[in-house]
Design a protein around this nucleic acid. Structure first.
Lengths: 206, 206
DNA sequence: CGGCTTAGTGAACGTATGTTCACTCAAACC
DNA sequence: GGTTTGAGTGAACATACGTTCACTAAGCCG
C-alpha cells in the first residue's frame, strides 16, 4: 500500500513485527494476561481476524516475545563476557553495559521481568527455562576465571545464580526508574563486590 | 442464612474475607490485572453488584490484599529476628522459618511476588513501598549485631537490600516448586553465607 | 414495636471479548 | 497470462464485562 515494491513475505514480516511491538507497548503497564487480541489488532491497525494469520493466540504471541527478548539478553551477556577478562573488571566493565542494554531495550527487559512471574503458564515456563540455561552458561564462564578452580560445580552454579538474580533485580529497577540509573548501578556495583568477595573467601572456609 | 446468630458486622467481615480469599485464588494463575469483578463475585457466590458494598474496584481490593500480605510478611520477619541472636544462627535458624511461613501462606507470598511487578500501578507502588520499609527495618536490626559497627549506613542498607532480594527470590521459588523446598533452602543457605561472608569481609577492604 | 440502615438481589444498559465464515484482490507461480 | 495462494476485510455470533438503578429483607436502635 504505502511502499510500491515489497515482497509478500517482507510485508508479512513487517506486520508481524508491528504486532510484537504493539504487544510490548500494550503489556508495558499491566501484563500479557490482561491484553486482548483485539487491543493488539487495533493498535497495529489491522482487523482482529488478521491476527490469526500470524499467531493463533495471545499466548503464542508471548512465546515469540520470549524468544525475541532472550536474543537481546544473550547479546548483552556475550558482550559483557567478551570484554571482561578479570573479576574486578568484570563488575566495573559490565555494569554500564547492562545499563546501556536495558536503556536500549527497556520493553524487552520489562517484559521478561514481568512475565517471568505473571505471564501465562507456558510463557513463564519458557522464560525460566531460558534463564536457567543462561545461568548454566555463566557458571561455566566463571569456571574459566583464574582462581576459581577450587570451587565445586555446585558452588559455581549457586554463585552464578546469585549473579543472575542480582542482574535481573537490577534490570527490574532500571526499567522502573530510568532516571536513577547512576544510583542503581553504583548500588549494584557495591553489592556485586560484596557478593564476589564472599564467593572468593568462601572456598577457604567450607 | 446458614448460621442462626451472627452480628451484621461479623457477616459483612466474613463476606469481605471470602472476597479476599477468592481474589487470591483467582489471581494465583494469572494476575490481578486479569481478574474481573464478576469472576470474583461468582467465586464468592454473590451477585456482581454486592461487590461494591466492600470495595469500589478490583484495584482497591488489591490494596487490601497488599495490607493483608504485608502483615503476614512482617509476622515472619519479627519471628525470624526474635530467635536470631547471632549471624550464623540467623541463617540456619531463620531459613526454615521462612520456608514454613511460605508454606503456611503460599497465596500471600505468590501475590506479593507477582503483583510487585505486574499488578495495577497503585498496587505495585504499595508493595514496593512496604518492601522498602521492611528493608530499612532490617538494616537497623543488622546494625545491632555485634561486629557490624564498622559498616556505614549506606553499606548496611545495601546489605539489607541484598538479603531482602534474596529472600524474595527464595519465596518466589518456594511458591513455584513447593516439592523442592529442601533443595531450595539448602541453596539459599549457601548463598546467604557467601553473601554475609562478603559483607563481613567488606569493611576490611574498602 | 416500628422506623432506619444496609448487605445482597436482579434486571438492564452499552461495550468488549474470542472465534467463525465467506469475501477480496494483489503478489507468486507454472 | 491465467490460476493459485494467502494477508487482510467485514459481518455476525454468543458470551463476558463494569456500572446503574430500584428492590428486598434482615439486623440495628430508639
Amino acid at each position: 500500500m504505502v511502499e510500491v515494491s515489497e515482497s509478500r513475505a517482507d510485508r508479512k514480516e513487517r506486520t508481524r513485527q508491528s504486532i510484537l511491538g504493539a504487544a510490548l507497548t500494550l503489556t508495558a503497564d499491566s501484563s500479557l494476561v490482561a491484553v486482548s487480541l483485539r487491543q493488539v489488532a487495533k493498535e497495529v491497525g489491522i482487523v482482529p481476524t488478521a491476527f490469526y494469520r500470524h499467531f493463533d493466540s495471545v499466548e503464542s504471541l508471548g512465546l515469540a516475545l520470549v524468544e525475541e527478548s532472550v536474543v537481546a539478553l544473550r547479546g548483552m551477556l556475550r558482550e559483557v563476557w567478551r570484554q571482561a577478562p578479570e573479576f574486578r573488571d568484570f563488575i566495573d566493565g559490565s555494569l554500564p553495559l547492562v545499563a546501556s542494554h536495558v536503556r536500549a531495550h527497556p520493553q524487552h527487559y520489562a517484559f521478561i521481568v514481568r512475565e517471568r512471574v505473571a505471564g501465562p503458564p507456558r510463557v513463564r515456563e519458557a522464560i525460566r527455562h531460558e534463564i536457567e540455561l543462561i545461568t548454566r552458561e555463566l557458571a561455566t564462564d566463571v569456571a574459566r576465571v583464574p582462581g576459581s578452580e577450587a570451587f565445586s560445580t555446585e558452588h559455581l552454579n549457586l554463585l552464578a545464580d546469585l549473579i543472575v538474580s542480582s542482574v535481573v533485580t537490577t534490570a527490574e529497577r532500571l526499567v522502573d526508574r530510568p532516571d536513577q540509573e547512576e544510583r542503581i548501578i553504583a548500588a549494584t556495583r557495591t553489592q556485586l563486590r560484596m557478593l564476589l568477595i564472599g564467593g572468593l573467601n568462601w572456598r577457604s572456609q567450607r
